[in-house]
Design a protein around this nucleic acid. Structure first.
Lengths: 132, 132
DNA sequence: GGCTGGTATCGTGCGCCGCATGGTACCTGG
DNA sequence: CCAGGTACCATGCGGCGCACGATACCAGCC
């Protein structure tokens, strides 16, 4: 079991959800890329980086889910602010619905099997039982 | 918004979790591929197909997370049964831990932003205030 | 015998997206 | 003038879900 295998595991898990996390973060007002990156990086279990966020934002823009505007900053280079379009809101709502179903499906599967719910499986009795 | 966009959305979401669902299903006894495929297909929010499951099982075998044995069936071709190895159990436990953190992170993000939870963001005060 | 349809296995190739890498530009402080 | 923080971006790789198609065994039917 390679150390850092968790990283790969999580990288796969994040697929398809990171972009909607960004949409969710834009729900109550506009933000800029660097800010979004920092917040995602801080969020427990969602360690991302600029290399993830910027290409992602470019895609969202191409798909018309967000709009942008440049605004000068008092310190540092100008920032590109992102805000949701109506399509963006719709996409987010759709995701939330799908996410809940997906999440519950996984939870159900993990719980059922772990919780000694072996009501009627034949279980051929040889069995390994690792004492981890 | 293309109809069937949900399918793509879910296909991405499933990434990195389907294989662990399979491991979870093998937790309490051995099963064969076709059976696993049907159960996953029936599970709400997890519509997969043989094209997903068989290559996945091959990978799990290569990585040593499952072992297999052929058993004849009273009707139809012989079946290849899969069961967890100790490494398989460990991988599953690791996933469950990571999954819960990930799941909670997403839930927190979706809830916070929707529930007007903007308690203490500094929000650099120069700026714009979009009246969305 | 041939034909259909269900059960069961497997291989190949595409597409998507997270991420590592590396590059540019602005501003401040030493 | 250079280091370091802020802010933006493009490119290419890798992994995995999935569509598609192939193979084989068995039962029923005419």
């Amino acid at each position: 079991m390679v150390p850092g295998g968790e990283a790969k595991l999580l990288a796969q898990l994040r697929r398809g959800s990171v972009q909607y996390c960004v949409l969710a973060m834009l729900r109550d007002g506009e933000r800029y890329g660097f800010e979004l990156t920092r917040e995602l990086a801080d969020a427990d279990g969602l360690v991302t980086s600029e290399g993830t966020v910027y290409p992602l934002l470019a895609r969202l823009r191409q798909e018309g889910l967000v709009e942008t505007s440049w605004q000068e900053s008092s310190q540092g280079p100008p920032r590109r602010y992102y805000r949701l379009t109506p399509d963006g809101y719709r996409a987010l709502d759709l995701f939330i619905e799908q996410w809940q179903r997906f999440r519950d499906a996984i939870d159900r599967l993990l719980d059922e099997e772990s919780a000694d719910g072996r009501s009627g499986r034949e279980r051929d009795s040889d069995s390994v039982l690792p004492q981890a």
